[in-house]
């Protein structure tokens, strides 16, 4: 049995421990992507890097936005802005489950006292044209992570397969520290000279963004920006691969993918504003998916996305 690990005292301590753990397991610790995304999967370090046969291992925190989940900071567990911890390893190592369980121990979950279960949950992202099989991981009946073996992303078969882990950080931290309301959770060490709670950091922004998402955002502008992002994505991909200035082959897969991310977030905002009907919804999702697929196609032609010639593809 592993030696007992002390319970973390703050939200940030959990993040720091996960960072240290996955760094020790050889992951590159990346920083959050600097755009508004709905989930850690949207980070190009996951979406694009899961394509092609080049090996890859990364972990990062990703601030994520779900405009419809805004509750003005009042709901104990629902936020429109929250953090996900994301781990992506390609090819998925044979001991991926054991590595994951090690990360739970690292944040103070004693595996001999808790009931950890892998419960069937197939993952699908209609906007990314991606799917995989795996589980939601339960700790004492609570879902603490999503564990997925990617099978397809952007319409491409994943060869090799990436293993992806997503931790909902607030929920996990609340459970580990036995906090009932997210806003009461210590953000830094409670014995610091200036102790801060999650509420001190985010209560006001939750309120402001809830109002913005449901009532404030200008829908005409959002619709227009959606169209712009869609057009820009296409335009960037339509450039010839050859760059006349440098004479190099430069496919703008990442800049185009940024526009896909934008379109996806704009769609989420429009959805929160309640201006997208049930039938239109599918059409918008289809449009974002079409962009994601084109970006995936383009990425596969780049240096990072192309298959390495030999079997070992590090």
């Amino acid at each position: 049995m592993a030696e007992t690990v002390a319970t973390p005292r703050s939200f940030q301590e959990i993040i720091l421990r996960l960072q240290a753990y996955w760094a020790s397991k050889g992951c590159a610790i990346l920083q959050p992507y600097d755009m508004e995304v709905g989930a850690g999967t949207f980070h190009p370090a996951t979406t694009l890097r899961s394509l092609g046969n080049k090996h890859w291992a990364a972990a990062y925190v990703q601030p994520s936005r779900r405009p419809t989940d805004g509750r003005y900071g009042e709901n104990p567990n629902r936020l429109q802005h929250y953090y996900q911890y994301q781990v992506i390893i390609k090819p998925s190592p044979p001991d991926m489950q054991a590595l994951y369980l090690g990360s739970l121990e690292a944040i103070g979950i004693d595996l001999s006292l808790h009931d950890i279960r892998f419960v069937e949950d197939d993952w699908e992202s209609p906007t990314l044209g991606a799917w995989g099989l795996g589980w939601e991981v339960w700790c004492d009946g609570m879902e603490v992570s999503q564990f997925t073996y990617f099978q397809q992303v952007g319409g491409h078969d994943c060869k090799p397969v990436s293993g992806e882990l997503t931790y909902g950080l607030e929920r996990l931290a609340m459970y580990v520290m036995a906090v009932d309301h997210v806003m009461d959770m210590p953000f830094n060490d409670p014995s610091s000279p200036i102790p801060l709670t999650y509420g001190d950091v985010f209560r006001q922004t939750e309120e402001e963004y809830s109002r913005h998402n449901f009532d404030g955002a200008t829908t005409e502008m959002l619709f227009r920006h959606f169209e712009d992002a869609e057009a820009e994505c296409q335009r960037l991909l339509d450039f010839p691969a050859e760059d006349p200035k440098t004479g190099k082959t430069i496919i703008m897969a990442h800049p185009a993918y940024d526009q896909t991310i934008k379109a996806s977030h704009l769609f989420n905002l429009l959805d929160a504003r309640g201006v997208i009907s049930v039938t239109e919804r599918q059409a918008y999702i289809g449009r974002v998916r079409a962009l994601a697929k084109k970006c995936a196609d383009a990425f596969r032609l780049t240096e990072a996305g192309r298959d390495a010639a030999s079997g070992d593809a590090a």
Partner: peptide
Amino acid sequence: PKSMRWGAGALRWVRPLH
């Protein structure tokens, strides 16, 4: 009903076969 690949292999099973 649904099967998958894992790692760098080509074998399909419901979840990784060890």
